[in-house]
């Protein structure tokens, strides 16, 4: 009796490996998708509340500081740009330039909580706290949550700076640095959506 042993074919590699590339690593994308889900739910609450209370939302934006919102957008975008330049530098194996760009990203990123601090002080002086109405309740809830995510990003930046200083990243391996970059850009994207909702639409 003849027995034939057949082995399963190994899985074929993707036709174009670059198309299936995961920037950073899988773990950071689980975190980013959780962040998008969390803010997605809050955005839904915002839109439903806006539909139910159009007058409150129309009047609310004029009472917030557009200058603070614009400054924070500039800080977030500029910090994101600096991280993109840090990634570009490490791809050329330029560790010192990478560290300088990460330092710039940190300083610019720290501008966000500083502006937020003065903005909240200014709000409270105008009598705008979390109980000032539905618009301001959603504003504090969404923007404070975003501030928490920015804080995680700043801690991540410090970690990645320390690792870069220790020579952990190179043109051959910069996965951790790219993962932090992905998180920071995603947090920037969320702010780009928050900004018009509270500071522009009136």
């Amino acid at each position: 009796m003849n027995a034939t042993l057949t082995l399963p074919h190994p899985p074929s590699p993707p036709a174009d490996a670059s198309v299936a590339r995961i920037p950073g690593n899988k773990g950071i994308w689980v975190g980013i998708f959780c962040e998008l889900t969390e803010f997605g739910l809050m955005f839904l609450v915002y839109f439903i509340a806006r539909a139910h209370h159009p007058e409150a939302f129309s009047a609310g934006a004029a009472r917030l500081s557009l200058a603070a919102g614009t400054a924070n957008t500039v800080f977030m975008l500029s910090s994101s740009y600096a991280i993109a330049r840090a990634l570009s530098a490490i791809r050329r194996d330029e560790q010192r330039a990478c560290l300088r760009w990460l330092g710039a990203a940190l300083v610019l990123g720290l501008g966000y909580p500083v502006v937020k601090f003065f903005e909240v002080q200014w709000n409270i002086a105008q009598g705008i706290d979390g109980s000032a109405g539905i618009f301001f309740t959603t504003y504090y809830y969404l923007t404070f949550n975003h501030l928490v995510h920015v804080s995680w990003g700043i801690l991540g930046l410090l970690w990645v700076m320390a690792r870069t200083r220790m020579g952990a990243y190179s043109a051959a391996d910069y996965q951790g640095l790219e993962a932090l970059g992905c998180y920071w850009h995603a947090t920037d994207l969320i702010w780009l959506a928050i900004f018009p909702l509270f500071y522009v639409l009136h």
């Binding site: 198309v19 299936a20 994101s80």
Partner: peptide, 16 residues
């Protein structure tokens, strides 16, 4: 957001 997705996040080369 499209500019950030394409140029900073580089998702044009990412997993579909």
């Amino acid at each position: 957001s499209r500019l950030v997705i394409v140029h900073f996040l580089e998702l044009n080369q990412a997993h579909p």
